[in-house]
Design a protein around this nucleic acid. Structure first.
Lengths: 347, 347
DNA sequence: TCGCTCAGCTTAAGCGCTTCAGATTCGAGA
DNA sequence: TCTCGAATCTGAAGCGCTTAAGCTGAGCGA
């Protein structure tokens, strides 16, 4: 009976202390690898801890140390559209690859809108639920950026251009350069009219890509147009159809994600045009998908797993007290595949 | 100065108590909506708490209540292949939809292999890091199932067939019925030889789908074969090519996920065959992708977000102390689109 | 008037850990 | 032989909260 009751109770360092014949302080020292106990005692304590199947009580440790060993990430997205974004799962995996070795966990929250995201951040900050947060999908004048700036105390890492990161540390990709490369390559193939099927206008990187796109069009002396979408396959297809129905249809498209590219390509085909003979297309996020469509998709390629790992490392620097700074990740490069070619020779 | 110092310190219920002129006990009662304080006092306390921007300290609450308000989920997957699975992001979103309203968080961990997953579970259990766990990608004789069965105390919800859930609660889809439906529909169209491009053999549902597939083939009196893959696009394409190169090539394929379907379709096209005129294909997980390929993909369709929500609800029942039981989620149904048709008439 | 109940509030004991100010021991230097 | 300091270990406070138990005074029946 006593044994059952004992096995029910959670094993604490007090149990270890009793069994090893030392004080709980000594146990704490031993378990945390700090000096203050002899190697002999330490070994004995560790053995006992192992025998008892002890594991640190996260809550108690958090309370005493005033740290939680977790990193938070809130995502304000419509769940319906979330599945398509191959980006996030890989991004998480990259983050995790840095968290696990440090014994950190990732607290994830998916909320329907920005307001709830802000509310979550407020709770996490005031309640010390996480040691740091990663902010994604940054907007222009992002309320999360300003909230965390005005209420310091929660180490923050912004995923996006430093121009929108306020006083926080950031890790960013040079989307402007990438956007220009796409235009340049298409112009080099001979295209004279390019459509950009862009994502949500509110997102900061959309504007950055837009500006660079228009800029480079002017620089190389060709025409182009931007179509606005919500990243969905439907709007991607619709924008494509609209563009091709105009008086001066483009001969090339640059899409802001991979799913719109697939949908757009299908729209192009339905209009009786061929990819890449009649129309070229470039996807933004590269994914396995791009390698297996017919034709294969030329895409702006980026190592998202490494990107996530980079983000995590920089956040840990901030958590450790480092000065906030901006860090440029590798620039997405065009991975040319079967969906890009010279335009049909003008008759 | 005093003000700065004060604003640096975290706001505790003690601060609220002092400001409201009551004891911390009263504050606790008020904040948790328990009786023990008058409505008038409660209102005052809530107002003060709001003014001070107080939020509960998760760690302290966890320690006192012996609960963490978080649910854990470990994923043992190669990060590289993770991005493609539209399944998980939607699944998470579904889970979240039930967690958020309850003030629960989702602790996510992505690890490279099953052994590390087991290690994580051990830590979570012994350290009381989570109130419950969701087990996905269940295998035959899954060590996680047996570990948690032999070391009770961590409420567990198995996502998968109850036959593999041990003593734990489970939420499952009738993959056998779905597998049979796929065969039946293809047979109904006139196909006499079907290939199933299956996923990882270790996973319990793979075997279930296999058995049902073979069973139904026999029932309707047609032929078929199973090809084993690791869910990757590469192996999906390779298996497709291999099948079509055999002496008696199949006229229809059933793939175990959507990404292999896309890759397989591309392999079929490269062999000079057309979908669906020469070969029919069915994808397992339905996704936006399936609606936008050319041709559109017929798929075994399932509401994954609702599935995730269902899983979360059942886990909460277990956490609340309910008896473990198995719950059948809706059965995936064939969503017929453009990739299925009668086979070419035999010459 | 007395005694009782009960709402409303206070007190204090935990929850399991870290940490820091001592206490104790032991060996080396003077 | 005595002193001092380093090494090792103990004791207790404290992290912010919940909650059982205790206290107080008002209201009420007898």
């Amino acid at each position: 009976m006593g044994r059952v009751a004992a096995s029910k109770r959670r094993v604490t360092i007090e149990d270890i202390a009793a069994r090893a014949g030392v004080s709980i302080g000594a146990v704490s020292f031993a378990l945390n690898g700090r000096k203050g106990v002899s190697e002999e005692t330490r070994a004995r304590i560790l053995r006992v801890a192992d025998e008892l199947g002890w594991a640190p009580a996260g809550a108690a440790r958090s309370l005493a140390e005033a740290k939680t060993n977790t990193i938070g990430l809130v995502l304000a997205r419509d769940p319906m559209n979330l599945g398509l974004e191959s980006f996030y799962m890989q991004f998480f995996a990259g983050i995790e690859s840095e968290l696990s070795p440090r014994g950190y966990g990732l607290l994830l929250q998916v909320v329907p809108d920005l307001e709830r995201e802000l509310e979550t951040l407020r709770l996490w900050r005031n309640g010390r639920r996480v040691d740091g947060v990663v902010l994604v999908d940054i907007r222009q004048d992002d309320p999360r950026v300003s909230y965390l700036a005005e209420h310091p105390g929660l180490p923050t890492l912004v995923v996006g251009d430093p121009a929108f990161a306020g006083p926080h540390a950031s890790v960013w990709t040079d989307d402007a350069a990438a956007s220009r490369e796409a235009v340049r390559v298409l112009a080099g193939l001979g295209h004279r009219r390019i459509a950009r099927i862009a994502g949500l206008e509110e997102l900061a990187h959309t504007r950055i890509r837009d500006d660079a796109f228009l800029d480079e069009l002017a620089a190389v002396g060709i025409e182009g147009e931007i179509f606005r979408t919500d990243y969905s396959a439907e709007q991607g297809a619709a924008a494509t159809t609209a563009a091709l129905g105009s008086v001066h249809p483009p001969t090339a498209f640059v899409y802001d994600n991979d799913i719109m590219t697939v949908a757009g390509m299908s729209a192009i085909t339905q209009l009786g045009l061929r990819v890449p003979e009649d129309v070229s297309v470039i996807a933004w996020d590269d994914s396995v998908l791009c390698r297996h469509t017919v034709p294969t998709l030329s895409a702006m390629s980026h190592d998202v797993i490494a990107f996530g790992a980079h983000v995590a490392r920089r956040l840990f620097e901030v958590v450790a007290g480092a000065e906030a700074s901006a860090h440029l990740d590798s620039t997405p490069r065009l991975q040319a595949r079967g969906s890009t070619a010279p335009p049909p020779s003008t008759g």
